[in-house]
């Protein structure tokens, strides 16, 4: 076990790093429905549908 860890330490650390980056990217994506720079914080992203008549 320990041997496996020390042999693959580079892969494990890098893998974790990539995982963290991907998680961050996911959080960024989840923030915004609107691709404008507000990143999902503006009222337009939180907007409810306006009362357009059908």
């Amino acid at each position: 076990m320990l041997e496996f860890l020390s042999d693959n330490i580079g892969t494990i650390v890098t893998g974790l790093l990539v995982l963290v980056i991907i998680i961050f990217a996911f959080r960024e994506v989840k923030k915004g429905g609107c691709s404008e720079a507000c990143g999902g914080d503006c009222a337009c992203c939180k907007m409810k549908p306006t009362d357009t008549e059908e």
């Binding site: 980056i21 991907i22 990217a25 996911f26 960024e28 994506v29 691709s35 404008e36 720079a37």
Partner: peptide, 20 residues
């Protein structure tokens, strides 16, 4: 800058995930 920055942010988020 506002538009360029949003482009960069998208590259680092949704594009990164999609390419992976």
């Amino acid at each position: 800058w506002e538009r360029v920055w949003s482009f960069i942010k998208r590259a680092g988020s949704i594009i990164l995930i999609a390419t992976a």
